[in-house]
């Protein structure tokens, strides 16, 4: 009977592990988050330098007043954001790829596809909505819009991966909402959300799931 019990217990453990592996994407690497955060900090530092030192704008006037938002500045900031996004995605892909290899799992499986889809729906919506806001000249609310939609994307995608992503998403939404109240400090809240929060959660995830592997 004891032996039987042991076998049953092991059966249950095995079932639990298979269910977990086939319902969530566990190869997401914390290092992806850390690097995305570092790139965001570099990009934000550049933007800060460009706006407040190179162009010597009075602090916060640029984001508040759309009239100051001239074409050259818009282009440079857009490129800056684009490069940060590209580097963040590339490093995210790279570290997650390495992590899934280490775990002996395929990176493209039904779960990771569902995860990407769940992430992209709110994210693309937010991106388009931000473009519409620019079109209307409502640039002062863009930083909070991107933070809020990014947070909602993470919350939506988190049902297919580790729980920490949900908390990262909630913190982005909160930062975005505070940003929307405290208009004019978009760059600061962006740095906090996309930079600092990614590094914090990336580090937590790295020590929680990867270091001991």
């Amino acid at each position: 009977m004891d032996n039987e019990n042991k076998k049953h217990l092991e059966d249950l453990k095995e079932i639990r592990s298979i269910m977990e592996r086939s319902s969530s994407f566990l190869s997401l690497s914390g290092l992806s988050g850390i690097f995305a955060g570092i790139f965001a900090l570099i990009g934000a530092s550049f933007a800060y330098w460009y706006i407040y030192i190179y162009h010597a704008f009075k602090r916060s006037s640029i984001i508040v007043n759309p009239i100051d938002f001239n074409f050259e500045i818009a282009t440079v900031l857009f490129l800056d954001a684009g490069i940060v996004l590209f580097l963040a995605l590339a490093s995210g892909y790279w570290f997650t790829y390495k992590n899934s290899k280490k775990k002996g799992l395929k990176m493209w499986n039904p779960i990771s596809k569902k995860l990407i889809f769940a992430l992209l729906i709110p994210l693309v919506t937010g991106g388009l909505f931000s473009l519409i806001l620019i079109w209307h000249g409502a640039t002062f609310i863009i930083s909070s819009t991107t933070l809020i939609f990014y947070g909602l994307s993470l919350i939506n995608a988190s049902k297919y991966t580790v729980r920490d992503i949900r908390y990262l998403g909630i913190s982005q939404v909160i930062i975005g909402l505070v940003d929307a109240i405290d208009i004019g400090y978009g760059l600061f809240y962006w740095t906090l959300g996309f930079g600092v929060m990614h590094i914090i959660y990336g580090t937590i995830m790295y020590f929680k799931y990867e270091k001991n592997d």
């Binding site: 095995e14 079932i15 298979i18 269910m19 086939s22 319902s23 039904p110 779960i111």
Partner: peptide, 8 residues
């Protein structure tokens, strides 16, 4: 097999 197919 059943574990996978009940989750997915």
């Amino acid at each position: 097999i059943m574990s996978v197919l009940t989750v997915q």
